[in-house]
Design a protein around this nucleic acid. Structure first.
Lengths: 231, 231
DNA sequence: TAATGTCCTAGGGTTTTCCCTAAGATTTAT
DNA sequence: ATAAATCTTAGGGAAAACCCTAGGACATTA
């Protein structure tokens, strides 16, 4: 009668809980998420990490089903990088991005990096639990407001980027130069920092202008900021 | 022996709790703060508000001792305005600003608006409770990291101006020039549009650089965008 | 009626940015 | 292995940005 492989028993097995890791450097958030989850019967928060490094360590030591990842952790690029790392290194572990940014292009980037869900930090308890369960069952989860944001994307983006709209692909050198321009460095200063001639830097500047389709540094910075390629 | 005005009894009077209102449009935060406070014997969360309007309504109906106010609520200017309103309208109610922004100039602005405390959202339980008790007892509360930020102010703010720093006051001409720079126009093009010599425009450019405290157009655009003075 | 302060206007001269061209190195595809 | 594509490195020369200085217009104040 009560066999070992009874699917009935498996489906209500209280010993199996979805193991969640919270990655956020803001205590209040971690507490809040934990509080929202605490009532759940099939989800448990097993790890809380405040740094990128600790997330990597934890994942190597413990089996985690779902990572709730604050994308600004502490900066957007860090969060995206970490997301990519998790998805690649632990394909079984699903990532749900949890952030305050309701920006369409960011959502797209996060999804590209392999996140299976995206929640805003003003989400509800119901939604949070639903998202965790969904991604754990190989589904994606994006709530209504996210969908809405993506729908409003094209007219919005087209207006603000004043031109081509798609993020150009930058070579490593170009990225370095762009970053330094945004820090206010001159061509000569960059040349010294990067141990090349000023002329080499100047060429990269020109390439940036061409790739972004802008005539000068002013619009380069403006466009790159709108595309969130610098900050 | 047990008289009514026994100061002993008053100090442990479990009937008096510091009444706290949480003003934050992010559910996770509200939950988190409530979770951190829940263990306390002398502090209770009596109200939770997700909009500026509801905060104003609640305050008019209920006596509140301490407001934990998210300054980005939903935008920084709203939070600052609300803070000012609360301080002026209900002098007995103390405001503790709770935010993710660790920007020196913002802290200064918040304090100017009458907030008695300032906490970052990565604060600890101990610190949160201590801050609430401190401001309720007419003291101010700023933790170590805040003090540190204020100490590092001058070098930090002048360099990256990475935030909401003080907006410089621009003359009409300067505003016109700034707008056109952000549109990618050159000095010569602006001169033609505005019927003055290129040299006149160049002077306004210099004034802009000086007023924003930046060395070149790249940082001018970046800073002005961060200050939301162009778009 | 000055005096003070702010804003707009410019010229001279230096530095930085931008455009055109091109060679060597590295990666990718055939 | 060879060709094609991409990236990085520069040079020369023109354009633009930037720094310093200074006169004139206008409003506010003494």
């Amino acid at each position: 009668m009560f066999t070992a492989d009874s699917s009935y028993f498996r489906s209500v097995d209280i010993n199996y809980m979805i193991r969640v890791l919270i990655a956020d450097d803001h205590n209040v958030f971690v507490e809040g998420i934990e509080s929202l989850i605490s009532g759940s019967l099939d989800i448990e928060v097993t790890e809380r990490c405040h740094t990128v490094q600790s997330v990597i360590e934890r994942l190597s030591q413990t089996a985690i089903d779902v990572v709730l990842l604050d994308i600004s952790f502490p900066y957007i690029e860090d969060g995206l990088g970490l997301c990519e790392y998790i998805v690649r290194t632990y394909p079984e572990t699903k990532v749900v991005a949890l952030t305050m940014h309701d920006d369409a292009s960011l959502i797209k980037r996060v999804v590209k990096k392999g996140a299976k869900g995206y929640l805003l930090k003003n989400t509800t308890k119901t939604e949070l639990l639903r998202a965790i369960q969904a991604v754990h069952h190989e589904k994606q989860y994006f709530n209504q407001s996210i969908t809405q944001i993506l729908l409003n994307d094209s007219p919005k983006t087209r207006r603000s980027t004043a031109g081509i709209g798609a993020k150009p692909h930058l070579s490593p050198r170009e990225s370095e130069v762009l970053t330094r321009i945004a820090q206010g460095l001159t061509t000569q200063q960059m040349a010294t920092q990067l141990f090349v001639s000023a002329k080499a830097i100047e060429f990269h500047r020109s390439s940036l202008l061409m790739k972004f389709g802008v005539p000068n540094t002013a619009l380069l910075i403006k466009t790159a900021m709108e595309m969130q390629m610098i900050d």
